[in-house]
Design a protein around this nucleic acid. Structure first.
Lengths: 358, 358
DNA sequence: TAAAAAAATGTGTGCGCACACAATGTGTTT
DNA sequence: AAACACATTGTGTGCGCACACATTTTTTTA
């Protein structure tokens, strides 16, 4: 009936609590015979440790490092940062300290510098957004050697199996976009895929989103009804950005949808606003303020929420669960592909993400 | 730096831990002067109790009752039940026991009987889905007198302020449906609102959903472009149900959308399947297996997820937080209005709702 | 003014666990 | 057989809190 404790097991096995403890933590110094007996009883009685007591008793300190983009360069990172801080605050009472290291998300060199710093701190665990594929690989090796477990979020990199990956299934999000476009124009239409402001060569997830969209139409035998145009755009030179768009929309007057694979959908919306274009519907990513502005105006139809707050929150949580509570954790944690529109927006912003959801 | 404990406060206030404890729990027997001094220090030092230790130390037992619909009559209730059980399992180690009482959701008498049973058990707290407005009111009064706090979910009833309400903003979900329909047919169309299988007089939320939808078009000055037809249907007599639908679709051949306010969207989809109708798009509620079947087939375009699992889970959680941890809890907890389609379905079903979300 | 009552404050214990340390037991060597 | 090493097992303490109980101080009463 009641929860079984170590002591209950000890009594049943006719040993002391210490011996049971040694078996539970596999710390040796237990005769094979007794060990097996205890193990059997643990199994039988379905023992589950009281995590409260465990956390209370241990005075061990944990030091984690979170390596993320700096919000000063890209406001997107405000949310992961907030999620991490929220989780860090909650974990503080278990002796967890989190050091935030933030790099310039447009500068691989900055990433390397911060990653080196992370290594030097020799933390018990690392949470990072491995934005730069080439640059991050040596660190994975190093951390493996240093035996520092790391959790990835935001960008999935399968190699060098991390402790866990938190994020979204980018491919599937492309499929969702496909569905939204298809539903919005069942008879077929013309679509612009816009990759804005990221090195596509270094960010596999953009390609995955594109593939997801394209395959949606192929799988549904709609590919001959939907024309897809692809563009890689850059905002470093805004005049050029506008010029490129001008050229695209002049030569493709039949365009009806724009699928923006990055968080820059608002730039397209702004462009449309300036050019008085209002017949092209936009589907994009990320609930950043600029996007929300145009979502509320109706210029952006849907945003797919990557729940960056949740990513940061769960990322730290995975480390805590693994290292502090010694729980088993899942290697991949896909967050939901929330379809956000003006009407349900309220439930996806702010820390309602932390209070109201799982 | 470190977390402050009661003892730290005691030292600073030059009293013993016991006195601080009395102040913290407002148990009296402390001189006004000392009380204020301690209170000030608590404020200053930003004391936050260690919930682990608190839970560990208390051997108090809590008994909660959950009063929900019986899944044998309506599979919808499987999810709330699962969520409740999940939360109950987690709370067991804090000495919480949850008794599930399940009533026939089509029979007010059954509800009354189970509610009486709940009263008799004299639990520390009650979680219930107050499906029958008239019948539930006397119980609210009784529980107020018995000083049993109760949490509502699924159906919102503002009167007799419950400890908390967990659920969805029904009106807003109607707005979401409006948006989906508008987006799917921007030039205007004809919509059937179907209330299936529930006493509309006794379920305010159906009306709210309808209002949400209607107001969407009014607010956006689209009401003259969109024609709305309303139907209250009943499945007790299936032949009659079909007949009613026949009559509706014959006299309204221009219908393009069907908005089902209950979880019975699949019945419409099934009807369409039999009649070889495939040009009318369906928006409904709830991820029950029958609905998912037609969602995957493409017959249902969107389902609005009410996250019933989460409702049950959070319902118990509110009671636990309030009574066990003595945390402050919010009076209303609106869960997100998830827009679910075939492509993002996977992330909204099963207990992924419990693992992957907040 | 001493005793009794009441108010205010202090002390000690257990919750379940982890871990350091103490205490056994077993076998080997001299 | 004593002395030793080593394997195995048992004991005790603290984590922060709640609460019962003990003690001290203040106030009231006779």
């Amino acid at each position: 009936m009641k929860n079984i404790r170590i002591k209950d097991i000890a009594v049943k096995a006719k040993v002391s609590a210490g011996t049971v403890d040694r078996v539970l933590h596999d710390r040796g110094n237990v005769s094979e015979k007794v060990k097996e007996r205890i193990l059997k009883i643990i199994e039988e009685m379905n023992y589950e440790p009281n995590l409260m007591a465990r956390a209370l008793g241990t005075k061990k300190e944990f030091h984690f490092v979170a390596l993320i983009g700096d919000p000063r360069y890209d406001a997107y990172w405000l949310d992961p940062k907030a999620g991490i801080q929220k989780a860090a605050k909650e974990a503080r009472q278990y002796g967890v300290k989190v050091t935030l290291l933030m790099f310039n998300p447009y500068d691989p060199g900055s990433f390397v510098k911060k990653a080196e710093e992370a290594s030097k701190l020799n933390p018990e665990g690392i949470l990072l957004a491995p934005m730069f594929y080439r640059e991050v690989l040596p660190f994975f090796e190093a951390w493996k050697k240093q035996e520092i477990p790391f959790v990835l979020f935001n960008t999935q990199i399968a190699e060098f199996d991390p402790l866990s990956y938190i994020g979204q299934d980018s491919y599937q999000s492309g499929q969702v976009a496909g569905k939204l476009i298809h539903y919005g124009q069942p008879q077929g239409s013309s679509i612009l895929i816009a990759h804005i402001d990221e090195e596509i060569s270094n960010s596999a997830h953009l390609t995955k989103k594109e593939q997801g969209l394209r395959n949606y139409f192929i799988q549904n035998n709609l590919d001959h009804q939907y024309e897809i145009i692809k563009a890689e755009l850059n905002l470093r030179n805004y005049a050029m950005f506008v010029e490129q768009l001008d050229s695209i929309f002049e030569s493709n007057p039949q365009l009806q949808f724009c699928f923006v694979t990055t968080s820059k959908a608002f730039e397209i919306a702004k462009y449309f606003e300036q050019k008085f274009i209002n017949h092209i519907r936009i589907v994009g990513y990320d609930l950043i303020p600029q996007n929300l502005h145009y979502l509320n105006k109706g210029a952006i139809s849907f945003l797919i929420n990557q729940n960056p707050l949740g990513q940061g929150y769960w990322g730290i949580n995975q480390l805590v669960n693994h290292l502090v509570f010694k729980k088993e954790i899942s290697a991949i944690k896909f967050l939901p592909l929330d379809i956000v529109t003006k009407e349900n927006l309220n439930y996806y912003i702010e820390d309602s993400m932390l209070h109201n959801r799982f």
